[in-house]
């Protein structure tokens, strides 16, 4: 049993170790060891294509995380007050956004938007000399759709576990509804919102397939990695991968820490 479990951890981390190890390779070829060197880290972060893709991805992931956290929380709060068919409809929409594969969301967004642009672009161009096109903004929009649903589910679970008497006590003590919300409800929901924010950020930062369809001329980091894998990997990509990997691990640990702390305060 113990040997099996140890094997599973090796199985999960061997490919990661391979990437980290090869990022210190001095040779040009990514997967033939030629000696230790950190030169690729310098090269990677002075390559404008890589830094630009990294900035684009960070911008998309941060926007996605903020928008999803806000809209998802609002959705969860709104659903609480909702009854009847409208509530069922929103529930269906939440589960559909999670269940429809990312690739189909990417395709659907692409063809719907491009068809719309084909209709309005001739008019726009004639009128203001400017045309609509796919880009980072479309990636954000498609990512927010999925993550609104994730945040709403997280926040709703926390709302349902919340002690109602706290809200009643606040009202009895003459707090305004806004005061109750800011001073009582929001702090209780904060761990779920923050966890949702971090999940949304990581999802968005990691996503390849949706961005591949809707990013238009913009290049995200996963798109850059994909195309450079196609051309043949250099240790440069392994170096970027190592940095990204360590940052994601840190983020994940942070998310875990936040969730656990939240659970403790809830007790």
């Amino acid at each position: 049993m113990r040997i099996f479990i140890a094997f599973i951890y090796v199985f999960l981390y061997a490919p990661i170790a391979l990437i980290v190890g090869l990022s210190f390779n001095s040779g040009r070829q990514a997967f033939v060891w030629q000696g230790f060197s950190t030169e690729w880290y310098g090269k990677a972060f002075s390559n404008p294509l890589i830094t630009e893709a990294l900035m684009t991805s960070l911008m998309i992931a941060l926007s996605t995380a903020f928008l999803s956290a806000i809209f998802g929380t609002l959705l969860a709060l709104g659903l609480e007050r909702l009854k009847g068919w409208l509530r069922v409809l929103f529930d269906i929409l939440i589960y559909t956004s999670i269940m429809v594969p990312g690739i189909v969301i990417g395709i659907a967004t692409l063809i719907a938007f491009v068809s719309f642009f084909d209709l309005v672009n001739p008019v726009l161009e004639a009128a203001i000399g400017w045309r609509l096109q796919m880009g980072a903004w479309a990636v954000i929009a498609a990512h927010v759709l999925f993550n609104i649903a994730v945040v709403a589910l997280l926040v709703r679970a926390r709302l349902q576990g919340m002690d109602r008497s706290l809200v009643e006590a606040s009202e009895d003590l003459y707090a305004t509804p806004a005061g109750t919300f800011v001073q009582v409800v929001l702090p209780l929901l904060a761990p779920a919102i923050l966890a949702g924010f971090l999940l949304a950020f990581t999802f968005s930062f990691e996503d390849f397939i949706i961005a591949y369809f809707v990013a238009g001329p913009d290049v995200t980091l996963p798109i850059y990695v994909f195309s450079s894998i196609r051309r043949g990997v250099t240790p440069e990509i392994n170096a970027v991968g190592t940095v990204v990997l360590l940052s994601s691990l840190l983020l994940l640990i942070a998310a875990q820490w936040v969730l656990r702390r939240g659970d403790r305060t809830a007790d």
């Binding site: 951890y9 490919p15 990661i16 990691e206 990695v225 994909f226 991968g241 990204v244 994940l252």
Partner: peptide, 17 residues
């Protein structure tokens, strides 16, 4: 957390490995 962590790191590079 150590079991979950790899899922949240570059899928492209891990499959490439």
């Amino acid at each position: 957390v150590l079991i979950m962590a790899p899922f949240w790191t570059s899928q492209l590079l891990r499959y490439y490995a």
